[in-house]
Write a protein that binds this DNA or RNA. Structure first.
Lengths: 168, 168
DNA sequence: TCCAAATGATTTACAGGTGTAATACCTGTT
DNA sequence: AACAGGTATTACACCTGTAAATCATTTGGA
């Protein structure tokens, strides 16, 4: 049983400040650290396809909802600012991965959909990502995986409730 | 038992692409989502203290190791580029939170330490952060917390092994 | 009905942080 | 004395968010 980074960080804090209740770090520190490592690992294949993670998330959001989305909806769906979505859409449109269509009724809004190429790109990249993730998770046995997923789900519900988790 | 965001995203993918093995999303999607929500929540108190999260991480690294660190060590410790560390150090030094000292032997390297103010700031902010985290985690019972921490530790070891987790 | 104000969606302007790559400097070795 | 390798900084380009601007729609009286 080897130690992970967080365990050694916690030990350091305990040495330097023994009164500190470092309990939360064991969970939240690990979550942050896992997320950072995963992003680093998964960004490489995306970059080699010419995409940012944020761009991939945007394309994925359109793909999985299976209908046209407005920029505003995309901003909410991908948890980024409207301005960032605008810039990403321009770039993706220049590369013919998405198309914009104006709304007939309300000329303020636009509708975004994937081009065939955009859709094909997502459908090629997503299985790669999932395969990598599966490989990482193979180090845990099945019960541990199920447990982990459930517990994370409980925590995520807590977090969503505590922060304006307004959601459809 | 309510649904979290990831559950609904997974459902969307299953509807649109039933052949997809979305299993890994249940864990890794949740980790990413939790990390994003936590960072958003914890950045606010930091900003009101005039600090970036990255700056706080840097100060924390110096505080917990309890000795002077070089910029290079800080870059490795905080998982960011050397250039970013340089800029952060300048800014923190301008605010008198850290001090630089040149090495007598090897004049390439510098040694960074906290000023009294820097140390006081970390010691004021860290308990706040931990208290917030404790409040979030209070929604899970003790066994669930222990389980979650252990499982995340196992996963993190996997990830560190798979990526050059060179670590003391 | 008509118009002014309020509301709303999106885009543009600007400032700040980050990483890569190029640069400056230092050390130890041959 | 030159060079190979390591450390820190600077230059540049890019991405992001906040805030302001633009344009369209809806609303609430007169």
């Amino acid at each position: 049983m080897t130690d992970d980074i967080v365990a050694s960080v916690v030990r350091q804090w305990q040495t330097v400040n023994p009164g500190l209740d470092t309990g939360p770090m064991e969970i939240i520190g690990r979550i942050n650290r896992c997320a950072a490592l995963l992003q680093q690992a998964e960004d490489a294949p995306l970059r080699s396809a010419g995409l940012t993670r944020a761009e991939f998330d945007l394309l994925g959001a359109v793909r999985r909802t299976d209908r046209e989305l407005t920029p505003g909806e995309l901003a909410r769906e991908t948890f980024s600012s409207g301005a960032a979505v605008t810039k990403r859409l321009r770039s993706l449109q220049d590369r013919a991965l998405v198309e914009r269509r104006g709304d007939a009724r309300d000329r303020r809004v636009a509708h975004v959909r994937l081009t065939d190429e955009g859709r094909a790109l997502v459908d090629r990249l997503l299985p790669e990502q999932l395969a990598y993730e599966r490989a990482v998770l193979a180090g845990l046995d099945g019960d541990a995986r199920d447990e982990l997923g459930s517990r994370l789900g409980e925590l995520l519900v807590q977090l969503e409730g505590r922060l304006g988790g307004a959601r459809r």
